[in-house]
Computed example of a mutant assay.
Amino acid sequence: MADPTLGIMTLYQKDGTLDEEERTYFRSLVLQGEELGLHVFVFTPEDVDPSGTSVRAHVYDREKGGWSRAPKPLPDAVYDRCRSQQSPKFRLMRSFRTQYPKLLYLNHPLSSKWGNHVILNKDSRIRPHLPLTRRFHTLGDLKEFTALHRIVYIKPVDGSGGRGIARVTRNGDGQLALSGRDASRAIIQPLTGSPEAVMRRLSGWITDRRYLIQQGIPLTLKDGRVHDIRLLIQKNASGHWQVTGAAGRIGAKGSATSNLHGGGEAVSFHRLMAARGFSEAKTAAIRNDMEALGRAIALRLEGHFGRLCELALDLAVDPAGHVWLIEVNPKPSREVFKRIGDQAAYTTALRRPLEYALFLI
């Protein structure tokens, strides 16, 4: 009997190629799948045969050490790795899911950052962990939020990797300091000035995209760099939510975000908490709060959108030890665990979607 099949659904880049970083991840999934008796291949909605019964898949050959193309029947299960974006290619993904609703999908798409916030804010267990967040439109929004909070973040409704995120800090003299990254992830030239001056600068690179404004949590370390915590929660081989691991991320010097792709550094959770001055007992309590919050968020979002297999939560811990949710990432990387040398968490993070696929099949 042939091995069950898992199709990893992704999107081509603008030049018609697969993302190089994702392809490295896909290779790992293929090799791990072989060990589990699961045949894994990669496809995009553009690869579907006109008959609708097969795909021209990307197949990795362990012996040859490379990728090739081969026709494959539609898989037994689909692992959706199509990251949200405003593009015709992303609409193709939605069209594929509409056309093939009976396929066994490991995960369903979530909403935008704003849509997810609205859903989570309705849960009394989660609400105390959500920073004040609203849609961002005008100078009045900027003035209102910076009067309430010394730090605010302005971020696109859709997006990932720290692109297009600005941090605005209110100084003691009432002026605002602006820093951040543009849509290409480049660090923007800092600016200090009036709310009007900051808004003019923002208007220069916040164009036709929809944005949020959000209460900022104090995340600056003694050296001036910002940090957060990435917690990965996944379905296990029995179909139950289980926390895979947590790790700290410290942003590059001068960066308003901690993303690894923007030059950030990965550190262990305990090392980061010790640097924040928390005792071992307090660190353990914080970790328990994070894991409980992660499960509550996973259950809430799955109850709304349908089956999910994994979520990465970007979390903040304020000086009092209270845990805050910055945002949810439904298509997470595992790189942070490799960078801190936690091979056990990294391997588990790779295998769990495959084990969950076998469970569903």
Score class of each variant (00 low, 15 high):
A345Q: 03
E291D: 03
Q85L: 05
K282C: 05
D15Y: 06
L350W: 07
R201T: 10
L308N: 00
Y12W: 12
I250P: 01
R170H: 03
S68E: 08
T169P: 00
E280A: 13
T146W: 06
G277T: 15
L301F: 11
R150F: 02
L148A: 10
A344M: 06
F337R: 03
R125V: 05
R97N: 05
L232T: 03
I126Q: 06
V267S: 00
A296E: 09
I119V: 15
G174K: 09
R271V: 13
M93E: 03
D49L: 13
G245F: 10
G251L: 14
L92A: 00
H304N: 04
A266V: 08
G193I: 14
L202T: 13
D49E: 13
S203K: 14
G172K: 11
E34L: 13
H227K: 01
R127K: 13
A312E: 02
S255K: 09
L219D: 12
A275Y: 14
Q343P: 01
L31S: 02
D123P: 10
G263M: 08
A247E: 00
L130F: 09
R181D: 02
I213G: 00
D47A: 09
R167V: 10
L325G: 02
A70R: 14
L106M: 09
L272Y: 11
N329V: 11
E355F: 04
E302H: 06
G52W: 13
S268W: 06
D15W: 09
A166S: 10
H227I: 09
K113C: 04
E34M: 10
P330E: 04
A275R: 15
P45Q: 02
V323W: 05
M1S: 07
E34A: 03
L148S: 06
R134Y: 05
R295P: 01
D289K: 15
F43H: 03
L354Y: 02
S112L: 14
L132D: 06
R230I: 14
L103K: 12
A345H: 05
V59H: 05
R167Q: 10
V168P: 06
F41K: 02
L92I: 05
T24F: 11
H137P: 00
L232M: 09
A70P: 04
L178W: 08
R352H: 10
K89L: 11
Y12L: 14
R295C: 07
G140V: 15
S279A: 08
P190T: 10
P109I: 14
C82E: 07
H304W: 15
Q85H: 03
N329I: 07
I165C: 03
